[in-house]
Simulated scan of single mutants.
Amino acid sequence: MDSISGMRLIQSFTNEEFESRRFAERNQENMTANLKSVRLRSMFGPIIDLLNNIGLVAVIVFGAWQVMEGEFTIGLIVAFLAYLRLLQSPVRNFSRVISIVRQSAAAFERITEILETQPEISDKGNAIELPAIKKKIEFKSVDFAYDETVPVLGNLNLTMKAGQVTALVGSSGAGKSTITSLLIRFYDPQNGTIKMDGHNIKDVSLKSLRGQMGIVSQDIILFNGSIRDNIVYGKLNATDDEIIESAKAANAHDFISAFPDGYDSQIGERGVKLSGGQKQRIAIARALLKNPQIIILDEATAALDTESEHLIQQALSRLMKKRTSIVIAHRLSTIHDADQIIVLEKGQVLEKGTHDQLMQNNGRYKQLHDLQFPQLSDIKYLAT
């Protein structure tokens, strides 16, 4: 499946022969296992037939001896042979059923093992409904590690005000995406608490928590189906007017209408028939249709051309309007107007403030900014 969805990558690296060999090896392993299974199953028939024939020989030999002794009649022997013949077919069929049952039992065990796996994150027995956020989101003394030996966040304390744009910046591995994953409760911290308007998110239902959030990430997930199917995923009972309105707000309506089938156009596996910018705008339309209280943007404009980025920035501006927004960004030009910028380093808050405040501090944020815009720092140096 990975080879099919990653066909372009395979072709770009000219690794078709490698993938063919790998497929042939897996196919050979599968064939060997199937042959072994068939060989074992094929033994049941001859064994059952052998046992049946032994039974026939035993009846004939024992019956002949009893006839000579005058204990049995020939008619009684014929009756025994007839009964034995009638028994052979059910016994043979039963052996086949046993083989099928054993195969089914093995498959059933694997399926039930998956179905009975309990999620690590679940609602408490007395979970409450989370009301719409109006004040703030707080991380208090939060510790988290995917692997106990490698901590990601350590004693993290930060506050994000409702209705404002909070940007998270820092080097790779600083913990930016982990913060949003904890907020959505894909994971729970080992220590500390995360609160929304004073409610510990562990005490609220997952549906009410995640129902307030919309996510637009760099790695867009689209399902194999129509454009309409993917947009309506944000609100399953949405009307056509609502779908079109959200697409217009996401600057997606024009390119969707240009397709022969419009909103019913098929986009292929993971949206393979769409460009990167088109996929991003469909994801934004999906988030707009959901109308979330909190919007999380994880590198939503990365790896896009200038024109697509401009269109998406317009759509994101509409999406973020009057919402609590959390923006993870490596392109610092996209967060100059953020109400609060939090600079993370090794899982801790290094700096926070507005763009102008952080630039005046001459700290880590200014270093990152100057690395991205060296020409601006050169101009200021010459001006002084």
Rank of each mutant, 00 (worst) to 15 (best):
N15K: 15
P119H: 04
G6T: 10
I121V: 15
L358C: 03
G55K: 15
M1C: 06
L288N: 14
D254Y: 12
L35C: 12
D123N: 14
F94G: 06
K279W: 02
D143L: 03
V343L: 01
G163Y: 04
M359K: 05
T306F: 00
G175N: 02
Q367D: 12
L332K: 03
N30Q: 12
Q280K: 08
T32I: 10
D219I: 11
G262E: 02
E345L: 12
I244A: 11
M68A: 01
Q218H: 11
N251C: 05
G70R: 08
E129S: 12
W65F: 07
I221V: 14
S20L: 13
E299Q: 03
A329L: 13
K346L: 13
S181N: 14
T178R: 01
I98G: 03
H199Q: 10
I256V: 13
F139N: 05
I74Q: 08
R21V: 04
P90F: 12
Y187A: 07
M160S: 04
H310P: 00
A132L: 08
F144N: 04
K134Q: 13
I54R: 04
D240R: 07
L304Q: 13
A82P: 02
V152H: 00
V67H: 02
I10Q: 06
N157Q: 06
H330W: 12
S257I: 06
S257F: 07
E299A: 01
I133M: 15
E129R: 03
G55D: 14
Y381A: 15
Q348H: 08
G63F: 15
A315I: 05
R39D: 07
G45F: 14
I342C: 01
I201T: 08
G173R: 02
R110W: 06
P90M: 11
I60G: 00
E148P: 03
T306P: 01
E71V: 09
A338W: 05
W65N: 00
H336L: 14
G277H: 07
G170T: 10
F23K: 11
T14L: 07
E109T: 04
G192H: 07
Y365R: 01
Q266T: 13
N237Q: 11
L35S: 11
L209Q: 08
P292Q: 13
N52D: 07
R185G: 05
I256C: 08
H253P: 01
G55W: 14
G63V: 11
Q218Y: 13
K140S: 08
M213D: 09
N155I: 03
R92P: 00
W65I: 04
F62Q: 09
N191T: 10
N157W: 00
S181D: 09
Q88A: 11
F373W: 02
E269V: 12
D229F: 06
K352F: 08
D197W: 04
E17I: 10
T14M: 05
N200F: 03
V165H: 02
A82E: 15
S181R: 09
I98Y: 03
L382I: 11
G225H: 08
